[in-house]
């Protein structure tokens, strides 16, 4: 029988949302429409319209050594063209943001090729070739993995994921890269590392509490989804913990 990944345990809404994000067969729900140019502006790695700087010549010109692995693995577009490796980094609020650092990494690993995610407690960075990055970033911003108020695109100075929200519902950001404008739309006024932008980049309206509650992937008592309520998840974690403690990851009980 062919192996079917289960993606994760749990019977709760949170567990279900986690599985939905990870499962590449489930299409991510497109919510907003941030353009390619806007993504380039927020990322701040190159000017919009500028050619992609390269780290090495295109693979076709470079002449690849005779290698069986290179024959099996098709290079991504960025790798083929010899693009530089660049990054996007997200900070997700613990107050019902739609994705969380570990969850993001799992999701991206299941869905994209040629990426190198880095997971930390309050932020998650993903590195890949520049033109692939722009496509992936667009996906991550335009779909249900993103909320303009509770997810921040922050290359540096990320502090804020575990703090209270501001009065207008925005996550704290020391550099205030994005602001909730008077028209109710969140706009980026600085790129991800905090350099002011020439024009405001709109990323849409913050999602309402109900949507955030229904789509959250974090267990949090304050968010209304206590971890203890999901008995299956707790049992699974306890099993892993016990196996690890007793057998040091050896697959026997």
């Amino acid at each position: 029988m062919a192996y079917k990944p289960q993606y994760g345990p749990g019977t709760s809404k949170v567990a279900e949302n986690r599985r939905k994000q990870m499962n590449p067969a489930v299409k991510l729900e497109k919510i907003r429409d941030v353009t390619d140019e806007d993504v380039v502006l927020i990322l701040g790695h190159r000017a919009p319209g500028q050619a992609y700087p390269t780290a090495h010549p295109p693979l076709a010109e470079q002449g690849e050594p005779d290698c069986p692995i290179r024959k099996i693995v098709a290079p991504t577009e960025g790798a083929k063209a010899g693009d530089r490796v660049r990054y996007i980094q997200f900070a997700d609020s613990m107050l019902n943001a739609p994705s969380q650092p570990y969850q993001r990494t799992y999701t991206e690993m299941y869905r994209y090729r040629g990426i190198d995610p880095g997971t930390l407690s309050g932020r998650q960075i993903v590195e890949c070739r520049e033109r692939d990055l722009e496509q992936i970033s667009k996906d991550l911003i335009n779909t249900n993995l993103f909320d303009p108020a509770r997810v921040g695109i922050r290359g540096a100075t990320v502090h804020g994921h575990s703090l209270r929200l501001a009065e207008d519902g925005m996550m704290f950001d020391m550099l205030q890269r994005c602001v909730l404008d008077k028209d109710g739309i969140v706009k980026y006024v600085k790129d991800q590392i905090g350099v002011p932008l020439d024009k405001k980049v709109a990323v849409g309206k913050p999602m309402d509490e109900k949507w955030l509650g229904d789509n959250t992937t974090i267990f949090h008592v304050l968010g209304g989804n206590p971890y203890r309520n999901d008995a299956e998840y707790v049992e699974y974690i306890q099993r892993i913990h016990s196996l690890r403690t007793k057998y040091g990851y050896m697959p026997k009980e």
Binding site: H159, L163, M174, Q176, V189, K190, G194, V195
Partner: peptide
Amino acid sequence: GPRVPEIVPYGPARGTPNVVAQ
């Protein structure tokens, strides 16, 4: 509360003025 400095203290934009509309 959390500090909102006038100059970006670290990161690639370090030393530049931290423009915060609020």
